[in-house]
Design a protein around this nucleic acid. Structure first.
Lengths: 353, 353
DNA sequence: CGATGTCAGGGTAACGTTATCATATACCCT
DNA sequence: AGGGTATATGATAACGTTACCCTGACATCG
């Protein structure tokens, strides 16, 4: 079988050098803007490059220079709008600095995470941005052992063995619960995420703190599940079956919130007349117009940007030896999904000093 | 400045070979499952690999073998759920075949597309999955000139210079308009996308065909814009200002539909009592529960899978010399956003033979 | 006036792998 | 016994680039 495509053999530094009448190293210097090059030589080389349509071979370059100029973003689910925004922030910041980004999905599986980390090590990835699937620092350890810097995103890991960029889930959840408390709600249920994931745990902690501070019980009102729509539906179903029924629901993530709303509707209840809902993470930006949920919005895009900044500092040895933790502020958005508690009778808890 | 990190030098084939008492090529053969290897030798080599924690260097491998085992997906906006699903389909299919996928966003800019194509060529990407930003086959030509196979997704390009995986926008739009016609609508406006993008043009063509066939005018009822929420809002505003006001609206993409809905609400009109709405592309899967739009849903995930299949065939020289065009079936989902035309008076157009 | 420094470029080797060709043994067939 | 084939391994070179170390020319300086 003959291949009839017209092969224009890829030009190499050698070809360019020959054409420009210089040595390959000189060509390399022109490409990399390194060392001393006279204007005349530079012009000759650039002309040759243009004539031959020369494109440097990144593979060979990385092999020799030990830098691939590639970063990787390992996350749990790129279809979650929160991570999609983060990914854009990462890509924009990285590509502005001349880096390419590889995206990987772990589906919250530690095994997949492990496989990706190994693959990326093979590919000589310069640095990694990681949303850890589990609670163990295993991947981080592996990467550190191979001298590949890591920045952990969104979730904390113990002990701190990498720079971390995240938000304050405890405080933010507290603020969210305060919104309900200030409107007279006293029976508030929390729909949690997977135990062991720091964000999930922290959000419950913030809830518990607010409730305790207000002198309210939380027993039976906290339930754990997954950060998915179906899990949110199930969790909401079970807390709505409690008696007396909670008047406020705290969904610890956006998908959980969607499931909860569906469950509330399935019960024939109205939001906020019968049940008020607050949630962590905003709805997808594209649906923002129709959003009625009261939420804590996290600056996903900025988190991505910041993480790249920290990572590049490490790569360029401009970072301090100790690990840094950057906590970005969240944004409380109060919308129509919260109302006065049906049983409030005018006696509303006021904000604590 | 001393670097105090404990360098465990990455083991190479040479180290493994030495330890196993064989030559480097033998190690290579074990890794690649190529050629003849006795059980005993294989065992020795594998043991050495395990002991040294050897990880092959993908860069060197690709440099020598001329295959990077990397594909790239260049799309216009990865935050659009339609493309996100497509991306997952691509990633799943590719990684099952041992390929890594690079994701790139062009934001509908031909310049960005061009830059990415060059970058990917540098990186020796084996093949490219492309949602073209413009209507010109420029990127495709460039890639073909460098012998890099391409599969075009979602949009057609003329002339056909690559395999294409897409849906039948003309036919699907026709079906969507029929839904309105069959419910007595006679004044139906179409909110188009950017002129020159095949999907945008085709959707208007399907609309026009259905209208003409029903003997209805389309003059003044077709308007062009962008595939964005804000453009949808503006386009809807202008057609809603027409007199008499259209009773049916066709949004040629999901973002446009969202803008249109917002405009309809802003006009104080109800869906479907005052205006029926049909749209191309479904809402994000996670929000499917709350969907009320009548839409044509495209099998985004499957499109991605199929495209990878075609691309891998080309890479393995198993593809026919001529370019293939795969048209996947769409799915018409009739939901609450369409009703009988307010002015129908029982006289409903029936389906054509 | 020699020493030193800046500027401009080249030579050689190496990064870690695999393509290509070569060698060697064992086995089967006629 | 001779030839062919399947099996098993090795030697050498090359993929395309850049790190590292040189060589000169010329200017500057004490």
């Amino acid at each position: 079988m003959y291949n009839e495509i017209d092969y224009t053999l890829m030009a190499t530094v050698r070809d360019v050098a020959e054409r420009a009448g210089v040595s390959p190293i000189t060509v390399s210097r022109v490409i990399n803007n390194a060392g001393y090059i006279s204007g005349a030589t530079r012009a000759k080389v650039e002309a040759a490059i243009a004539e031959l349509g020369y494109v440097p071979n990144t593979l060979a370059r990385s092999l020799r220079s030990k830098r691939s100029h590639t970063l990787a973003f390992i996350t749990t689910d790129i279809t979650n709008p929160f991570f999609t925004s983060m990914a854009r922030g990462i890509e924009d910041a990285a590509s502005a600095a001349g880096y390419t980004v590889l995206f990987c999905n772990t589906d919250e599986s530690v095994e997949k995470e492990d496989r990706y980390v190994r693959l990326l090590l093979q590919k000589q990835t310069d640095g990694i941005l990681l949303v850890p699937a589990g609670s163990s620092p295993r991947s981080v350890d592996l990467l550190r052992s191979q001298d590949t810097p890591v920045v952990v995103l969104d979730r904390a890991i113990e002990p701190l063995k990498a720079d971390v960029v995240r938000c304050d889930s405890v405080r933010s959840s507290y603020d969210l619960i305060r919104v309900l408390l200030e409107r007279g709600h006293r029976r508030i249920a929390a729909l949690g995420g997977p135990v062991g994931i720091s964000t999930a745990d922290d959000r419950i902690a913030g809830y518990t703190h607010a409730m305790k501070e207000a002198g309210l019980p939380t027993r039976d009102l906290v339930i754990y599940g997954q950060f998915t729509e179906s899990s949110g539906f199930e969790m909401a179903q079970s807390v709505l079956a409690l008696s007396p029924r909670p008047t406020g629901l705290f969904a610890t993530n956006n998908f959980v919130a969607l499931g909860a709303i569906r469950a509330i509707e399935a019960h024939g209840l109205r939001i906020p007349q019968d049940v008020s809902v607050v949630a962590f993470d905003d709805v997808p930006p594209v649906l923002a117009q129709y959003a009625f949920l009261t939420v804590i919005a996290q600056p996903a895009y900025q988190m991505g940007q910041k993480a790249v900044e920290l990572l590049l500092q490490r790569l360029q040895d401009e970072a301090p030896p100790e690990y840094r933790q950057v906590i970005l502020p969240t944004h409380l958005i109060v919308r129509g999904s919260v109302g006065l508690a049906p049983d409030a009778r005018g006696s509303v808890v006021t904000a604590p000093k």
